[in-house]
């Protein structure tokens, strides 16, 4: 039975530019279940990191509307003191760049110990050191006792990311937010780190929100996927449905633009135009319409909503129904869907 851990409801995160607020995350609603990896995919500027930071309450200057419900508490409208009790304990975060996420002047063991200390004031020092070494072993760092007293610059990128993960899981969080955890790493290291995150999840039954732009990572890790474009979720489905029957034009375009060995020699699909800047986002109508100008305006909804096309599979706007790429005929597109 799926158990809901975290519920994000109508979340709107706006940033102030000059005298106006502009929403980078615009009315996002989603749920994270226990023992699940929910991937959030999109290109830079789509609002996926802003969403992650909002959940963790890391935006200090943004205006946040809506609710983020965790165990009947609303993270979006919570005092900092209360939030600090949750962060690092029930909510863990893995940052993208392990070099900037770690304090360069502090031994890594101390840094992990700090997380433990903040939430378990009564823990003795010896106990803490023991626990840190246990954590370092858990994230696959060889010679943990030695690594304990090393500084971040003495470790390789993969090892640093393991330290960051050790910090994030130090207090067995129920919700783990991973913001591009492997983007800064080499391919072989990436697969090791992903395996580690999966293993930890299976062990602790935590729910993981995985923010990434890499569809390969999504295919390997996710149980469910939410695709974001211009601050909104445009499609959400379980991972198999999303890769086998993607519906939204943006999802289909993204999948077509990655090099694929099975379609060798073919041109890659290019999405026309660019992601509009925050101030220039169209706030009305289908936000993706400008990038698919060959689709007739009548195909779009006036106020695009998420439609449930199959259980658990939601698609925004109606333009997916008759969508086709410019180089294929409408007929072919129809057959592709059915």
């Amino acid at each position: 039975m799926t158990e809901e851990l975290l519920k994000v409801q109508h979340l709107k995160t706006s940033f102030r530019i000059k005298d106006d607020y502009y929403a980078a995350v615009d009315d996002v609603t989603l749920t994270l279940n226990k023992n699940e990896v929910l991937a959030i995919v999109g290109e830079s500027g789509c609002g996926k990191s802003a969403l992650a930071f909002s959940i963790m309450g890391l935006h200090t200057k943004a205006k946040i509307e809506g609710n983020i419900l965790y165990k009947d508490q609303d993270l979006a409208n919570m005092s900092l003191a209360k939030l600090n009790k949750l962060r690092g304990k029930d909510l863990g975060m893995i940052f993208q760049d392990p070099l900037t996420a770690l304090n360069p002047l502090m031994e890594v063991g101390e840094q992990i110990g700090e997380v433990l200390m903040l939430h378990n004031k009564n823990m003795s020092k010896t106990k803490r050191v023991e626990k840190v070494i246990e954590l370092l072993n858990k994230v696959g760092i060889p010679r943990a006792a030695h690594t304990f007293s090393q500084f971040p610059h003495e470790l390789s990128g993969g090892m640093r990311q393991r330290v960051v993960i050790a910090m994030a899981i130090a207090n067995d969080p129920e919700v783990l937010v991973a913001d591009e955890p492997t983007t800064a790493l080499d391919a072989t290291i990436q697969s090791q780190i992903l395996d580690l995150i999966k293993e930890l999840k299976d062990g602790s039954q935590a729910g993981i929100i995985l923010i990434t732009h890499d569809l390969g990572v999504v295919a390997e890790m996710a149980d469910r996927v939410a695709v974001m474009y211009a601050g909104q979720i445009v499609e959400i489905a379980d991972v198999h449905t999303l890769f086998d029957h993607p519906l939204h034009p943006y999802t289909r375009s993204l999948l077509n633009s990655i090099p694929n060995a099975e379609r060798e020699g073919e041109k890659l699909h290019v999405i026309q135009g660019i992601v509009p800047a925050l101030q220039k986002l169209p706030r009305k109508g289908c936000r993706f319409s400008a990038r698919i100008p060959w689709i007739d305006a009548s195909e779009h909804e006036e106020n695009p909503e998420l439609h449930e096309v199959a259980p658990g599979h939601f698609v925004r706007c109606t333009c997916y129904k008759n969508f086709h790429f410019p180089d294929e005929s409408k007929e072919a597109a129809h057959h592709g869907i059915s």
């Binding site: 391919a187 072989t188 990436q190 890499d214 390969g216 991972v239 890769f243």
Partner: peptide, 14 residues
Amino acid sequence: RLVAAIPDIDPKKR
């Protein structure tokens, strides 16, 4: 090892 580390975009092959 390098070739094996490439993520596959087919979740069925996970």
